[in-house]
Design a protein around this nucleic acid. Structure first.
Lengths: 203, 203, 203, 203
DNA sequence: GATGAATGAGTATTCATTCAT
DNA sequence: AATGAATGAATACTCATTCAT
């Protein structure tokens, strides 16, 4: 890397970053609106107002684009949780609620996360960057299990809590036969229950 | 409905049921062997030794076939858990371990379950029959939270536990960068932790 | 292999063979009419009056289809040459003329042959069946160099003659700035010259 | 045309010529390294270190660029052959060997030549400048058939020899199932055979 | 009851080329 | 003189599903 960058180059790079962002925005918007497998390159391109081919200037791959959506969104979730973690008790419950609320309101994130998690090892290989963020998320959870736990134990509990909340979302966010609002509140109720259980039982 | 059924009709119905079972067997076998998106109608047909078109005599839809695989497998899981529930303490832990072990060893079930859960409302609408079985499963879990709980409370905990175990599977069964065996044992460890936490905290 | 085949199965197989032939015919016709890279699966399908997808019931691949066109056409060339080889002197000249005439009148064959020859090793791997036919063609040529030659020598001459005729076609069949008819007759004239040279010099 | 050219204009023209040369160099290098259809404008541009769009300042077309590569390379072949033609006997054999050796070692030239020759009339129309060089090459060959031949006869033989050598290259340079070195030596052997045959029979 | 045949709709990706800056 | 951005057009292939026989 050159020590300084010509302002012009920098400008262009930033502009490119902006356009990249627009594509990610479009994809995110679509994921919030449509089921996963109806979001193709064509749809995304149309949403941004460019041609499908243009997307490939910014992402080498469909999966690369998806991963970046995933990372961006999960990062925003992390930020939100980090702020929540600065507040008061009952910490676990507040974190859990915040987490599932984020995912509930952010269908894009929920869908993509599920896609990659369910996708098996193949897909998983491209997730390196995502894994880092996920680890920070796990760290955040882990810090809520300090007590007399060993590091290993608190890590385990963090994993378990994180997984449990994902499970709540996956198992009940689309639970059929109820209204969306009903499902939403059930998910939150479950998340709270999980949090309480971990708060009491995770000692 | 005619009050009684002619033996001949009955026979034919049973034969049909048998053939249906063979198709379901084939699909299940394939799902255990291959990643989800490599299991198509053609593959299933080939595995049974019939033509793809013939499958449509027994199932109106690909999804209907999948749902039946799901039901059948989940039923077998139910049976297993029911037997486990007759054993001794620590009940929750033993149930949890049994549940994740089943799903870990039964990739077919795991894959299809994920498919439908992640598939959103559209897919979920076809799951009516599955939901009944799932309810019985939830009942089973619920009975483990008897104490001084209200029915609503124990139901909630059952939901929460069930969801948590699903989450453990989905979040960590394909976790990248580890060996299959390692992942498997991590999943069991997490399931146990979850069970313990629910046992202590779910009161 | 079962010793006998049910007539019904045989019939179906033959019908399939016929349909396969129709596709090959269509492709051949297109190659005679259009430059190579304008002959795609879509065009072929349209020409036969079926959908592109249907082609894949008969050929697993675009290249497989092309190879079969190649084989079929080259086989017909072989038959023609074999008949010519039964006639009288001047043998080499008559064979050469027949060969280039065939290829000149059969643009399909000429184009595909060039495609595979120029395509490098990659393409060449799929040509096993074609190579057998080509070898028979070379045998035919070889038999015209009997004299006092060693087998190796006459094989070499056969290769050389065969290659030379191909070269005449490739180098002058599209030679620009002349009329088609003019080019055609120039090619024949050259083929004759080559044949004569080989007849006199190849001793 | 102005009778004289301002030095400045001349300079600029020369600079342009130089840059053009760099592009041709890059393309040539790539063709020597990669199969034909992996050499695109982007690759060439990258190799030179400019943008694809910039190439269009120097060449109106991809084909124009290719033609110029072709011309330049064939010119160098001509020079080499011209020097060979100054040597002693057996002339035809030495020329033939030199020709196929050049083409064998210069994959760029071989690939592009094949591309244009196989491309049909469409492509051929753009080859006017190439044809002039080719004619000089043919002249060179023609001078080796002096004897008692009419001009027309020796021209014909020159065409035939030239075409035959091309045919040897195209027919056997990629012949499958042998090692590169084996193919190379077979090509040379055939070229020699062709030359001998023409030397004896072309009288 | 079964099947061979056929298909329509769908998808990601590539590339030479253009143009405003 | 150069380029970053953008694109239109193209393409092979897949798959669940239908239907006449």
């Amino acid at each position: 890397m050159s020590r300084s960058e010509s302002p012009l180059v920098k400008l262009r790079r930033e502009e490119k970053e902006v356009r990249k962002g627009l594509i990610l925005d479009a994809a995110t918007a679509l994921f919030s609106r449509l089921p996963f497998d109806q979001v193709g390159m064509r749809e995304i391109a149309t949403e941004v107002g460019i041609s499908p081919a243009a997307i490939y200037r910014y992402f080498s791959d469909r999966d690369e684009l998806f991963v970046e959506v995933l990372c961006r969104e999960v990062e925003s979730v992390y930020d939100r949780l980090a702020r929540v973690a600065e507040g008061g008790e009952p910490m676990l419950e507040r974190l859990a609620t915040a987490y599932v609320t984020c995912l509930t309101d952010n269908r894009a994130l929920f869908q993509i996360m599920t896609y990659f998690m369910a996708g098996g090892e193949i897909r998983a290989e491209r997730l390196e960057r995502f894994n880092q963020i996920q680890r920070r998320l796990l760290d955040l959870f882990q810090r809520q299990f300090p007590g007399g736990h060993s590091a290993a134990r608190s890590r385990l509990l963090a994993h378990a809590l994180f997984a449990s909340l994902n499970g709540v979302l996956i198992s009940f966010l689309n639970y059929p036969g109820r209204e969306a609002e009903e499902r939403r509140s059930h998910v939150v109720r479950l998340a709270k229950a999980v949090a309480q259980v971990f708060a009491q039982g995770g000692r």
